[in-house]
Simulated scan of single mutants.
Amino acid sequence: MASFTGDGSRRLHRLVKGRTLVIGAPYLWLLVFFLLPFLIVVRISFAQMDGARISDLFAYADQALVMKLDLLSYATIFQDEIYGSTYGHSLLYAGVTTLICLVIGYPFAYFMARAPAALQPLLLMGVMLPFWTSFLLRVYAWKGLLDAETGWVGRFLAHVHAEQLLLPLGLISAPGQFLYSPFSLVLGMVYTYLPFMVLPLYGTLSKLDLRLLEAAQDLGATPWQAFWRITVPLSRSAIVAGAMLVFIPCVGEYVIPELLGGPETLMIGRVLWDEFFSNNDWPMASSIAVVMVLLIIVPLAIFNNSQAKAARS
């Protein structure tokens, strides 16, 4: 009996130890590769540029340890209108891109999930196929495609007089000028990040129990009612996951606004680049990065907290 109890205790100890290791590994990864670098950025944001080096936050003088926090960079962000407008543009373009990706991606993911089993791997490969080509090359290709004189996409848009719709909405600055505009910027981001919306939606919709839809139809629900009351609520977690996968990288996007955007599409990624490498103002750039992370993390944490409370209730 004592031997049995001892063996059980050892197995329980190994089980708890293995579970702690499995759970602790992701937290260790986040600590080393996210939290520590972020703390370094926060530390730089409260410093000053002392020539080519960053000033120290702590100074020891007269047997006293003094902490020097410079808030000039944060004050500049909240006082200078260009930073506020840049954050606004970044959030706006990221939100529009996320919405368009959802509108396009949900029907496609639904079609993939309902397609014959033999056809689904081919459709999935079609979604993943753009990742076989360099991200930079794919974005740069749109510069040629959207040219109104040489690109077939630009010529098609000019042929159907798309500027009659895009120009009143402010998406292009002049007739036939589809490049270097909010239109080309959003188009490039939708093209780039659409697979990040489709994949989580497909993963959830493909596992949906179709008997629930059959039961809804037996109870008199139309296909549209069954879709809104069963399919959409059950795929809500995938919608949120896809939206986060699209929205978060879009906020800090640099390459697409640089190649396809114009002067009126200034986003926070370009401002970060200018502050780091053109102005060599690391504290200012770090402050911009910290505010950008807070703009994303804080609402996301509040949303996750509310979702967890709703699930518990």
Rank of each mutant, 00 (worst) to 15 (best):
A117W: 12
V246N: 01
V22E: 01
V271M: 06
S278Q: 14
S181H: 06
A311R: 15
P233E: 13
L295Y: 14
N279A: 10
G6F: 15
R53F: 12
A64P: 00
A2T: 12
I77S: 03
I256F: 06
Y60D: 01
Y106S: 01
R312Y: 12
K68M: 04
D274E: 12
V255I: 12
G220N: 05
W282V: 09
D80V: 04
L57E: 02
F78V: 12
A285M: 10
P107M: 00
L272I: 14
I100Y: 10
V290T: 10
L260S: 01
A109G: 13
L166V: 07
A94Y: 08
P195D: 02
D70I: 03
L187F: 11
L30R: 09
V298C: 14
M112G: 07
T86M: 10
G51M: 10
T97M: 09
S181Y: 09
P130C: 10
A238D: 03
V160C: 00
L199K: 04
E275D: 13
G252C: 13
L199F: 08
L300K: 08
L119A: 13
F227P: 02
L179W: 03
F276R: 07
V22F: 11
P233N: 14
W29G: 01
V240K: 00
I54A: 11
Q177W: 08
A301P: 05
R10T: 06
L187A: 09
S173R: 07
P37H: 14
Y60V: 08
S237K: 12
L145K: 05
P26H: 15
C101L: 11
D209R: 05
L123D: 01
L199T: 01
Q177G: 11
L123S: 09
A25L: 14
R14D: 07
F38V: 04
T265P: 08
F58A: 10
S235W: 09
M128T: 13
S287Y: 14
F34I: 04
Y27W: 15
I23N: 07
A301N: 00
C250I: 00
T76C: 04
M197W: 05
A241G: 14
P223A: 13
V139M: 05
A221T: 08
G84P: 02
W152F: 15
Q225V: 15
S181P: 03
L31H: 02
F131M: 05
F4S: 12
P249L: 06
S55D: 09
T204H: 03
L31Q: 03
N304D: 09
L28R: 08
Y140H: 01
P195L: 03
K309Q: 15
F108R: 03
F46W: 05
V291F: 15
G126T: 00
F227L: 06
T222Q: 11
L12Q: 13
G262T: 03
I172P: 01
L210A: 11
D62Q: 13
L99Q: 05
L194R: 04
A59W: 00
L179A: 05
V41G: 05
Y180W: 13
D218C: 10
Y191K: 03
Q217C: 09
F46V: 04
W224G: 06
V103D: 01
I40D: 03
L166G: 05
V96M: 11
E81Y: 15
V240H: 07
F178W: 09
K207D: 06
N305P: 00
A308Q: 06
V293H: 06
